[in-house]
Design a protein around this nucleic acid. Structure first.
Lengths: 140, 140
DNA sequence: GTAACTGCAAAATATTTGCATCCTT
DNA sequence: AAGGATGCAAATATTTTGCAGTTAC
């Protein structure tokens, strides 16, 4: 299945019409291993989408559970594709994100198992994000 | 030791002059169990510090390792006191933060042990943040 | 054809910088 | 007294909102 078809069906599955900006932005996510900042999108797509369109597209994708935001220690806004199990309004990812303090890149470490967090029973856990800061394998 | 003296010595230890805004903001942190957003400071201190002063004070505290930022999924900026082991430029906290999706409060779960994250050896880990989303014990 | 999406303009919000004044040491 | 901290003004940057024109279905 070609990437274009993949993108189209992903959009249709989420009851979203297939538009140029959505397709291109989604394509960027699928071509990128790590996380994407809002600012990256205008640069890396080559396309010149309106800043507002980018904001709205990202918000739509988050709402639909296609992408999720990544909490970062330096409080920049990052987005990444959801792997699976995400439904509208509920993300069930248990992510490990690694932020390299040298190259600044954030990557999802899919191979790393997120350890169980043992909270008191009174808490209901919906999502666990683990953010690791340090030096990545490229910079080490 | 009174709180005032504690605050003063903490500031002096970090080579910071003891000023009204720093004392009051630090006092707020020490009186608050959870995390504090920038906006909370103008409200909760009762004092009216200039917004710029608050920005600069928070940044100074972060630089000195007195407080640290908390990554949040909704990309608001939160700050909390560092427990210990923080030195200038390097935070060694292994935090568990809990964000309640009902009341919106973020709290540090000091009692919860941060599990070990097993990364490939090529990575150097400096800090691990665990952010748990869900419903807290008060709202459950 | 209709509902939804986009782009532009502008408003609202958040953050940073320069500089004169005031406060801490 | 000297250096640093504050507050004000203003410059930037970021995000949101309204609306008219355009596009997907």
């Amino acid at each position: 299945m070609s990437v274009e078809i993949q993108i189209q069906s992903l959009l249709k599955t989420n009851q979203l019409s297939v538009t140029d900006s959505r397709s291109k932005i989604l394509e960027l996510f699928m071509a990128t291993s790590g996380a994407i900042a809002h600012g990256d999108i205008e640069k890396k797509t080559g396309e010149k989408f309106d800043r507002v369109t980018v904001y709205r597209t990202l918000q739509t994708f988050v709402d639909k559970g296609i992408i999720h935001t990544i909490p970062t220690a330096d409080n920049t806004v990052l987005y990444a594709l959801c792997k699976d199990n995400c439904t509208e309004g509920h993300h069930h990812d248990h992510h490990v994100h690694f932020v390299c303090e040298l190259c600044g890149k954030t990557s999802c470490l899919d191979a790393v198992v997120v350890p169980e967090v043992n909270l008191p029973k009174a808490y209901k856990v919906k999502q666990v994000d683990v953010v690791v800061n340090g030096v990545c394998k490229e910079c080490n």
